[in-house]
């Protein structure tokens, strides 16, 4: 099944469809993400961009289509057994818009929960890895605090550390900064930039067009459940060919 896909692609998405009841959200999504690159997904609200991301982690299971991450390819038109689904989910880490940290656990406990409870790694090892991750996101002194004691940006950075702790092959970000106060956005974006520089393969749904332009190797413009335009940022954001893309970018970059 993987024979025809380019070996350098970490993520391959082919013909993904998803409907909620009668509402067809994704109509035929296909794209590739080469290993070690960053893909930004942009598009108007309701375009299906968040749903695309969620199908990549099977938070929303695609109704049809083939998704390959690393060495695991799953055809969602067929019934997928539980073990395969669990393996598929383990391929990627997810960072949510609303961080979804566990409020009853400290920062450190949040980060080691997956490695210790799910991956059964020794606690001491998980703790030292977690402290390194906290250092990486600039929060080593917050290790023993509860999420409510942190600012929104700090919570989001813990969310990133929690996802990284499982050492997934692919990192998924669902509008990681859109719930934040403007002055907190920068810290989170700079952490994501560091990850990009560190060679992580990432898919980021974002409204931060300037950020996408700086960080992304590839930009997907999604509208009406299809990829309307895809390519390097200088093309999709710089010289979009589609009228819908131009209209969207104009409204976002020049709202008044």
């Amino acid at each position: 099944m993987t024979a025809e896909t380019d070996v350098t692609d970490l993520l391959t998405v082919r013909g993904v469809r998803k409907a909620f009841g009668d509402h067809e959200v994704l109509r035929d999504i296909s794209f590739e993400v080469p290993k070690g690159t960053v893909t930004a997904v942009i598009g108007p609200s309701g375009s299906g961009k968040t749903t695309v991301l969620r199908t990549l982690n099977a938070l929303d299971k695609a109704d049809a289509g083939v998704i390959g991450i690393g060495d695991l390819t799953v055809d969602f038109a067929e019934p997928v057994d539980r073990a395969t689904l669990a393996r598929f989910r383990a391929q990627s880490g997810m960072v949510f818009q609303a961080h979804n940290l566990f409020p009853h656990m400290t920062v450190l406990q949040n980060i080691i929960e997956g490695p210790v409870i799910v991956q059964k790694r020794p606690k001491a090892e998980a703790l030292s890895a977690a402290r390194k991750l906290l250092e990486q996101v600039g929060l080593e002194e917050k290790a023993d605090q509860y999420p409510y004691q942190l600012s929104g940006g700090q919570q989001q950075r813990v969310g990133i550390a929690r996802a990284l702790a499982l050492e997934p092959q692919l990192m998924l970000f669902d509008e990681p900064t859109s719930a934040l106060d403007p002055e907190l956005v920068g810290d989170v974006l700079s952490v994501i930039k560091d990850l990009a520089a560190g060679g992580w393969t990432m898919v980021i749904v974002t409204h931060e067009i300037r950020f996408a332009q700086q960080v992304a190797d590839q930009v997907l413009f999604i509208d009406g459940g299809v990829v309307l335009e895809a390519g390097p940022p200088e093309q999709v954001i710089g010289e979009p060919t589609q009228a819908r893309t131009r209209q969207f970018l104009k409204r976002i970059l020049d709202p008044i």
Binding site: L59, A86, R89, F96, A98, N100, E113, G114, I117, Q119
Partner: peptide, 11 residues
């Protein structure tokens, strides 16, 4: 979101 976060870390 708590269910979803747990699911994404493999629980």
């Amino acid at each position: 979101g708590q269910w979803e976060a747990s699911q994404t870390i493999g629980m």
